[in-house]
Design a protein around this nucleic acid. Structure first.
Lengths: 180, 180
DNA sequence: GTCTATAAAGCGATAGAC
DNA sequence: GTCTATCGCTTTATAGAC
């Protein structure tokens, strides 16, 4: 029986999980095939640019999610801060899921995806800065940088120690720093 | 002219820089050869276990450095906290140098080097907890987790934004959290 | 101890049938 | 749109000369 046509949209989350689980280099075409259930030809049909184009699409998709669910609420004002923390805790599965942009930033992939990675973090810091200023907190920019860095570091240490508790501790501290 | 014999010890820092610059997978044998100036045979002579053994030796070397310069002062008491921040800022070149353990923790290498990575971070948190308790601060363990995570996240965001300033901001906040 | 040559496997990308 | 076969290249590891 012929396989029914998959949509480009529907496979992007599957590619994302594959990249998260194996890293950019570790996610070989064979891995991406089995993660999506598609053959090589199908993948290249959706993404003529190959693996790099798939990763770019995945990063864009994550970026879009954060824009809608995190950045936009932040740009609406102080109330977005709580929304952000809840959204982040949920998105990163309380520290069990890594941040692709953070992972790529530390590795060789930083050069290849520099603009996308940079935009993700600068948009985040900028939106959070706005919300913290709206909340009347002092030094909103520095606070925003600390909070975003804390979240990223929380993911690193939670994975290193294999302890989601560490992420919870960091997130609690970041909430306090952000006036929650 | 025959090349003079290199010591295993002397090439470990060169291997470390290569892994930092290219990541574990990106640091191919060809890269490691040119980073050390040695041929393949010499590298396998020093490290019969190949690339994995080289990375393990590098991680151990970093661990040893932190033990002497960071953890031991922390275990001597509250005064070690300042020593730690100065040492960390210097070691990570104010955010321009990545943490190998942190990089590996986010990637696929976490599984392969799980014990080494875990020990590095748990020793760090433990030693810092001791020093913060000695300084009379409340919730020393949670503070220690936040500080170490902040440092790691600062490295992520500094690289992502290509801005060592971000690392400085995070480090300043962590110092305050640690009572400096 | 150092080197080069090479083996064996895996990689991303492509071609072409259906 | 989907698949498989295959190309060309790179990878790690090994063998063997010096």
């Amino acid at each position: 029986m012929r396989k029914s046509a998959a949509s480009r949209e529907s496979i992007i989350p599957l590619l994302a999980e594959a990249f998260r689980d194996h890293g950019y280099e570790g996610a070989s075409m064979a891995v991406l095939e089995s993660a999506t259930g598609l053959g090589r030809g199908s993948l290249y049909n959706f993404f003529p640019g190959g693996k790099e184009m798939m990763a770019e699409a995945v990063l864009d998709d994550v970026d879009r999610w954060f824009y809608e669910r995190i950045f936009t609420p932040l740009l609406a004002g102080a109330s977005g801060v709580e929304t952000m923390f809840d959204g982040v805790d949920s998105y990163f599965r309380s520290g069990r899921r890594v941040c692709l942009q953070g992972m790529f930033a530390l590795g060789r992939e930083r050069d290849r995806f520099a603009l996308t990675i940079r935009r993700y973090f600068s948009d985040w810091v900028e939106a959070l800065t706005y919300a913290l200023r709206d909340a009347g907190l002092s030094e909103p920019h520095d606070r925003a940088v600390r909070v975003v860095a804390g979240i990223q570091g929380g993911l690193v240490i939670a994975r290193a120690l294999d302890s989601p508790d560490a992420f919870a501790v960091v997130l609690k501290g970041a909430r306090r720093d952000a006036g929650c």
